[in-house]
Design a protein around this nucleic acid. Structure first.
Length: 364
DNA sequence: CACCCGTGGGT
DNA sequence: TACCCAAGGGT
């Protein structure tokens, strides 16, 4: 995308300083090639770079680690992932959030396998055409896996550039300006290490709240540090308040112990995920709409959960019935793992399971 | 372009 | 508690 590279001595000195810092402080991560391996000529595996970058979208390193290991243990190559069942991949992603990423991950693996012979395109443009790969991820894979001098711009880079250059334009309007600042510093040597260096800097030193300017490799050239406003940058436009929505969630068990579950439609919130049947989630309390005929109980318990753009309060309903469900299917106890549910439904499960174990007249 | 789309940790 | 934040992409 952004092919402009460091063109003057000052920019080259800045990127060189940061690469020196990176060589001394790079964090160890499961998807990174260590210095010894790199010295031996080992290149990063594009599949692992891609998988880690998609998992890391809007997500912390700590949250990703175990998922990355689980995925690469189970599906070591992109062709293995392409051959996986949709439900297995969605279940393995459960809890990580932004489930469209998992749907696009699988689409992408299948396109790479079927249309590209199992090999990822080695340019940002080629990568950008794949499902779930946008401006950031295409540049990151091209730089890290294929040594292309692409400019990688994520939230860390935006924050670091705003401070380094003292850019006070608020986000998101500042995006083009910050991207230009980042492009002017991108080196043509070791662009992948440089990209990871800026992101590591943002994650460990140039942090959102209390930046550790005293130990920053860029403390001397940093404009915001000089003017004392580092912690205030980048400025951001105010956000819209989150409304609260309400709904009912139905947890039914068959006398044989099976749970009544459904797979949500591919599009929209929690798309493609395993779930308990529920009403629509609306700002006015919705009407009761049980998925199966039963003597439904109201345990007076509520699940509270906050999504990206609204708060949710779900009233719990429980039942035990062997009636044929109008919606969803009974999943045998042995075939159901609560960890396969997205978090809001895992909360509902935990609440219902505790209730069914104690206060509910259950034959189970 | 504005909006939609999760989650867990930090303050 | 309530808010902020994270290695964004799709529509």
């Amino acid at each position: 995308m952004h092919k402009k590279i460091a063109s003057d001595a000052a920019a080259a000195a800045l990127s060189s300083t940061l690469l020196d810092w990176y060589d001394a402080h790079a964090r160890v991560m499961p998807w990174r090639v260590g210095p010894a391996e790199r010295a031996a000529g080992t290149r990063p595996d594009p599949y692992r770079v891609w998988l880690s970058e998609v998992m890391l979208q809007q997500t912390t390193v700590a949250a990703v680690r175990d998922y990355f290991r689980a995925f690469t243990d189970r599906w070591p190559r992109v062709t293995d992932l392409a051959a996986a069942a949709d439900a297995d991949v969605m279940a393995a992603w459960a809890g990580l959030g932004y489930y469209a990423r998992a749907r696009n991950l699988l689409k992408c693996a299948r396109v790479v396998t079927q249309d590209h012979g199992g090999r990822f395109p080695d340019t940002a443009e080629g990568l950008r055409a794949l499902p779930g790969i946008g401006p950031y991820t295409s540049a990151a894979i091209a730089a890290i896996a294929f040594d292309r001098p692409e400019t990688v711009v994520d939230g860390n880079v935006e924050r670091v550039m705003a401070r380094l250059r003292g850019i006070e334009t608020p986000l998101p309007p500042a995006k083009p300006e910050l991207t230009e600042a980042a492009a002017a510093l991108t080196p043509d040597k070791r662009p992948g290490d440089y990209a990871q260096a800026v992101m590591d800097l943002g994650a460990t030193i140039c942090t959102p709240r209390n930046p550790a300017c005293g130990i920053c490799p860029w403390r001397d050239p940093c404009v915001a540090r000089a003017t004392g406003i580092a912690a205030e940058l980048p400025r951001k436009l105010p956000k819209k308040p989150k409304p609260t929505r309400f709904g009912l969630v139905y947890v039914a068990r068959h006398p044989d112990g099976a749970w009544l579950l459904e797979t949500r439609p591919d599009r929209g919130l929690l798309g493609g995920m395993l779930a308990y049947p529920s009403t629509d989630w609306t700002e006015e309390a919705p009407a009761d709409a049980p998925p199966v005929a039963a003597d439904w109980h109201d345990p007076a318990l509520e699940v509270r959960h906050t999504f990206t753009h609204f708060h949710l309060r779900l009233a719990l309903r429980t039942a035990i019935t062997d009636a044929p469900p109008a919606r969803g299917r009974f999943v045998p106890r042995a075939a159901f793992r609560p960890a396969d549910l997205p978090t809001v439904f895992r909360k509902a499960h935990d609440l219902a399971a505790a209730h069914l174990d104690t206060g509910f007249p259950s034959p189970l």
